[in-house]
Design a protein around this nucleic acid. Sequence first.
DNA 1: CGTGACTTTGGGAGCGCTCCCACTGGAAGC
DNA 2: GCTTCCAGTGGGAGCGCTCCCAAAGTCACG
Lengths: 337, 337
Amino acid sequence: MAEAAPRRHPTLDEVAEHAGVSRSVASRALNNAPHVSRTKREAVERAVRQLGYTRNSTARALATRQTGAAALVISGEDPSIFADPFFARVIVGASAALDSADLHLMLCLAASDRGRKRVEELLRSRGADGVMLMALREDDPLTRMADEAQMPVVFGGRPVGSVPRWYVDVDNVGGAREATEHLVSRGRRRVAVICGRLDTEAGRARYRGYRDAMLGAGLDPFPPTEGDFTERSGAAAMAALLAEHPDVDGVFAANDNMAAGALRTVRKAGRRVPAEVAVVGFDDLAIAQVADPPLTTVHQPVEALGREMARMLVALVNGQDPTPLVLPTRLTVRAST
Amino acid sequence: MAEAAPRRHPTLDEVAEHAGVSRSVASRALNNAPHVSRTKREAVERAVRQLGYTRNSTARALATRQTGAAALVISGEDPSIFADPFFARVIVGASAALDSADLHLMLCLAASDRGRKRVEELLRSRGADGVMLMALREDDPLTRMADEAQMPVVFGGRPVGSVPRWYVDVDNVGGAREATEHLVSRGRRRVAVICGRLDTEAGRARYRGYRDAMLGAGLDPFPPTEGDFTERSGAAAMAALLAEHPDVDGVFAANDNMAAGALRTVRKAGRRVPAEVAVVGFDDLAIAQVADPPLTTVHQPVEALGREMARMLVALVNGQDPTPLVLPTRLTVRAST
DNA sequence: CGTGACTTTGGGAGCGCTCCCACTGGAAGC
DNA sequence: GCTTCCAGTGGGAGCGCTCCCAAAGTCACG
């Protein structure tokens, strides 16, 4: 026609013109909406193909007030927390669930101040349809931002000191209790604990579970020896434990990384696992199976955690009001106990 | 005023009215653009504060034709490939670089057909300003999509069989060669190789490096024993190797996961590392330090890989024409050799 | 053949922002 | 005193889409 110039991106108007219909009809045809005759629908489809048209998602987002994206925000002082494969698996689960709801995933590592600023900007400027929040710590500035967010918020794990309206968590207390009871049932009496960060709810809850189990068994719980969920901190905590309580015969570590570190220290100290010291972890990540000896651990459904967070968010975005979820854990016994 | 109704989201027009200026001035003030008097600028800032205004990022995106987001696409048959902590570290690097360019990160795990469809949709509908592509395999459908993408594309690692215009890679050949030469320098003569997937460029390049080094030392290279970059596959490959070539005295594994698996098998077979069999890995991920014995490995700058990909993309988005980058590797010697 | 009940159609008004441009008025230059 | 210049200003036209709504066409039924 007149405009043979190869425009970069054809618009819906051009498709409509090419197909000899109005913009409205073209739009309806594209969205598989009703009230379009068979002929015109086909004409539009042909025009789309000939022009290589793809709808501009930004314009659509503006008109519909839906961005088509959900954000996953991972808090933490420094970005290396994200190196924990735990998050990778959460993402796998969330990504799958978002995929089936046709939502894209925006990943925000809110480590630096700048990162947090940008998250705040995102939450306030409606750059996403909803947000999933993880790894919050005590007095985390993200908690306030979440309150002020202009969109639905789902928490992964509960924040410290408050119970949000919507969250997906794992039965940390129950899992830790079961792990500790298992050690006791193996005849251990001096069962120590290597805690995760006690400024996280998961860290606290797992200690609580340990404590409950010890008291329930009529044993003295150890005071918390705190790690930060890394292998290195587990190794250090175990060294401290061995120095102070040489008669320790069991250890519950609040995650697998720290349990692996503990294993390393115990081995280096020349003690045998599980004969002299039995060790239980938490998470059941890959490292648990690779550890030497393979780690007895509390399995938690990590992909499911991500998936359920995403599903809950999708429900919220669709105007529903889902109920919070606490996923069960399950003890997996291997050679370390 | 007349409209005392508590509107959900104030618009720029409302801010302008509240501040007694025009929309244009308000916009300029918000963007720190020139041609705004001090008084009006302050009036706008006050109005913004009073109304709790935040700019609608979608509307802005439509007007500027910039989404403010970059996508990171990770290919792969099944999503579990993403569990490899390698990607987490790439993300940490990329995220930091994108942060300083004020771009958000969209993460796409293009595992399923549906996932790939959605990536294609994203690339064609300009849902991002640019895209980083990783873990492509031979004849990967994403290669074609990348060609047709309506935005800049940066490759992480080279795709099989072609050299894209913009990429960041790691010196896989050089690293593998150095690893193998190191084994030879330790007096090993029967040095086997556990390859990564040979339908990836990294897998092939690392085998090539191994082969070069063996030939250079006047030794017979082993034919490739192929793994898939997982610990389990490394263990299996090592078992096969030991069965077929009981006299193996050195192994180069194409990544740390497989090297760790090999370590496990060797230990189970009752051979000592490194006395009887020396093992070298590739990547220098956390597992290398935790392995028993700690793994000699080819360190690659994983965060830097992500960072440089992001930087290159930012440059492209800004209309520059950066040059491809190949990052150096470095052998890190530990107790396994 | 009129009437109500649909379905199909396209015009137009947004969604909330940026940016071009024409206009004003005061300072500087001659 | 009269141009020249430019910082400051606001109107208006998009960006490309969705969706409301009024108008036109189709059909069956009494």
